[in-house]
Computed example of a mutant assay.
Amino acid sequence: MGFRLPPENLSWVRHDLMDAGWRGRMMARHLVLMVPVCVGLALLPAEAGIRVAVVALALLSSAFVVVISAGDIRRARLRQHGLPVPDEPRPGPPRY
């Protein structure tokens, strides 16, 4: 939720952000936060088709943003906890 964890949790943060599967864990965390929002949107008064469309739009667009910015989110969380940030190649044209 944006808070810095205590120093005794640094090994967990390191595992969460550095080990294999970190993108999946990041997406799972995002979905846990978005499901209550989507339930709230689904309970708004409207036709069923509109409610489904609004929930789908909210869920898919937010998941898309997390997917395309996962590396930046990861780097920010590593810096927030004072952990080393791994060097990752930036996307772009190949350097010859």
Rank of each mutant, 00 (worst) to 15 (best):
G40K: 00
P36D: 01
R51W: 02
R25T: 08
A56S: 13
G92C: 05
A28R: 13
L33E: 09
A56I: 04
M27N: 06
P91A: 04
G21K: 04
G40R: 01
L44M: 13
R29C: 13
A20D: 14
D19H: 11
A58T: 07
P45M: 02
A58Y: 03
G24S: 10
M1Q: 12
E8L: 07
A28Y: 10
S61D: 01
A70T: 04
A46D: 11
A53R: 03
V39W: 03
R75D: 14
V32I: 15
H81G: 04
V66D: 07
Q80T: 10
L43Q: 06
R29F: 14
M18E: 14
P6E: 05
W12C: 14
L83Q: 07
R4H: 03
N9V: 04
I68A: 05
R29P: 04
A28E: 11
L33R: 14
P84W: 08
P94T: 07
G82Q: 02
P36E: 01
N9A: 15
G82K: 06
H15I: 04
L17D: 02
A46M: 10
G92Q: 01
M1H: 12
V37L: 12
G2L: 07
P45L: 01
L44S: 07
L83D: 01
E47C: 11
P86H: 03
R79M: 10
A70F: 05
S11T: 14
A20R: 15
V66Y: 08
D16H: 12
A56P: 06
D87R: 15
V55E: 02
L60D: 00
P91K: 02
L33F: 13
V52W: 08
V55D: 03
V37G: 02
P93T: 06
P36V: 09
A76C: 04
A76E: 09
E47Y: 06
H30K: 05
D87I: 13
L31E: 10
P94W: 09
A56W: 00
V66G: 05
V52K: 08
V55A: 09
V54D: 07
L57E: 02
I73E: 05
V13T: 05
R4E: 11
L59G: 14
P94R: 07
P84H: 07
A76T: 14
S62E: 03
P93M: 09
H15P: 00
V37P: 02
D19R: 14
V13E: 02
G71W: 07
G92E: 01
A46E: 04
P6T: 03
G40T: 00
R79Q: 12
R75P: 00
R74L: 01
D87E: 15
P86R: 02
R4G: 08
W12Q: 15
E8H: 13
I68S: 02
S61K: 00
L59T: 07
V52Y: 05
V67F: 15
P93Q: 08
R75Y: 01
V35G: 04
R14W: 08
I68T: 10
V65T: 12
S69V: 11
R77N: 13
A48Q: 10
G71Y: 06
H30M: 08
I50G: 15
V13I: 13
R4Q: 11
